[in-house]
Design a protein around this nucleic acid. Structure first.
Lengths: 113, 113
DNA sequence: AAAACCACTTACCTTGGGGTGAGCGCTTAC
DNA sequence: GTAAGCGCTCACCCCAAGGTAAGTGGTTTT
C-alpha cells in the first residue's frame, strides 16, 4: 500500500492504517475470536487469497493483528487482534454511528426520488 | 464515485461519504469559515480543479456542505459546512486521535530501523 | 492414486479515481 | 487589447489497488 503523507494530521495517519478494502472487515472478525486464513476467506465473501494475505501482512506490520503459527503435521496459522487493533475498532465506533445516520438520510432521499 | 454496498454496516456507509482524496480537507476548511472555489484550490495544494469541483458536487449532494451563489458582476460562489457536515467532523475526531497514536508508533519503529 | 484441505505466492489483467491541460463565458485591471 | 481572475467543464492519460487463475509443498481423507 502506498502511504499518504501525514504531515501531522491524525486523520491521514489513520487512513494509512485502515485503507485496504478488507482491513476493517478482517479486524472485526479477528476481534470476535482468533481466525485462521481459510476461515477469513469464508467470512469475507469476495476477498481474493492474494489480497487477504497481503492485507494480513500489512496489518501485522502495523501491529493491529498477531500471527501465530501452530506446530503440527497440518499447517495451522491463527490471526488475532492486538490491544492496539482493538483500540482502532473503538475509535471507529463514532464514525460508524455517524455512518448509520448518513445511511438513513440516503434512504429518505431515495424514497422521495 | 462508486458507492460500496453498505448492507447495514455504518462504517461502510461513512466511507461512502468521506472517500475522496480531498473531502475531509475540504470539510475542514469550510468548517473554519465559508470558502470560495479559488480559495479552496489554494488551501489544498495539489488538488486539481476537476476533482475539486467533482468532490464539492458530491459533498453538496450528500448534504455535507452548502453551495451559495452570490449575485454581482463577478462570479462569487461560497461553500460552507452544514450542521450535518460538522457532525461528521466530530465523528472523525476519535479516529484522528487514534491516528496520532499510530503515527507515533510508526516513528518509533522508523527510529529503531 | 486421486482429490481435497492447509496457507500461501506469482504473473497477468482490469478498473476507476485522480491528474493534466485546454477551453468557456464573463469581468476587471493594466 | 490583452492579460488575469472568476468558477467551472471536457477529453485524455496514468497508475496502483485489487481480482483471476494457476502453481507450490505439504498432509489427510476416500
Amino acid at each position: 500500500m502506498k502511504r499518504l503523507e501525514t504531515d501531522e494530521c491524525g486523520f491521514a495517519s489513520a487512513l494509512n492504517a485502515i485503507s485496504g478494502k478488507w482491513k476493517m472487515g478482517i479486524l472485526w472478525e479477528v476481534t470476535l475470536r482468533p481466525r485462521r486464513f481459510g476461515e477469513l476467506r469464508r467470512l469475507l465473501p469476495g476477498v481474493s487469497e492474494k489480497v487477504l494475505a497481503q492485507q494480513l501482512r500489512e496489518m501485522e506490520a502495523d501491529d493491529l493483528i498477531r500471527r501465530e503459527v501452530f506446530p503440527g503435521a497440518v499447517q495451522k496459522v491463527e490471526y488475532s487482534a492486538t490491544d492496539f487493533g482493538r483500540s482502532l475498532n473503538e475509535a471507529v465506533d463514532a464514525l460508524s454511528r455517524w455512518g448509520k445516520a448518513f445511511e438513513k438520510r440516503q434512504e429518505r432521499k431515495a424514497m422521495v426520488a
